[in-house]
């Protein structure tokens, strides 16, 4: 086995109702320093973590959603959002933040980090992962 493992962070819960989304993000940020092959999956209520225009003033919690837009700076390029989960919730990609990374192999071109994938495609991605951290 090579030294680099495929890490997949599976996010299935909405933000703020529980702490899982925030603390998952903290693992992702620390994990980024380990030079592994990292991907994030957002499915079921996890897709709500990526909505734009989150405003937490009224609940007096820290709005951690801007952190997602920093993931590109941590060289996290693979953010999978499940198509079926979006559709079931009446959401489209336009309801989500626009997340990007700069591709150093392509003259630092700005590219989209989010890929909308079907459940079937996500199943294959999960299957090919070595370490799956579920939140």
């Amino acid at each position: 086995m090579s030294d680099v493992k495929k890490f997949l962070y599976v996010n299935r819960k909405a933000p703020y109702g529980t702490i899982y989304a925030l603390e998952s993000l903290e693992v992702v940020l620390i994990g980024a320093a380990f030079e592994q092959d990292v991907a994030l999956a957002f499915l079921d209520d996890g897709v709500y973590q990526l909505t734009k225009d989150q405003n937490t003033d009224g609940i007096e919690m820290k709005n951690f959603s801007p952190t997602y837009s920093a993931l590109g700076d941590y060289d996290i390029r693979k953010i999978y959002v499940e198509k079926e989960s979006l559709e079931e919730r009446g959401l489209t990609i336009d309801d989500l933040q626009h997340l990007t990374y700069e591709d150093e192999d392509d003259d630092w071109a700005e590219k989209d980090s989010i890929q909308v994938v079907t459940a079937k495609e996500l199943a294959e991605i999960m299957d090919q992962s070595d370490v799956i951290l579920s939140f």
């Binding site: 370490v131 799956i132 579920s134 939140f135």
Partner: peptide
């Protein structure tokens, strides 16, 4: 026995 494990929480 299986190659990897995923906990659905």
């Amino acid at each position: 026995k299986y190659d990897n494990v995923q906990s659905w929480l």
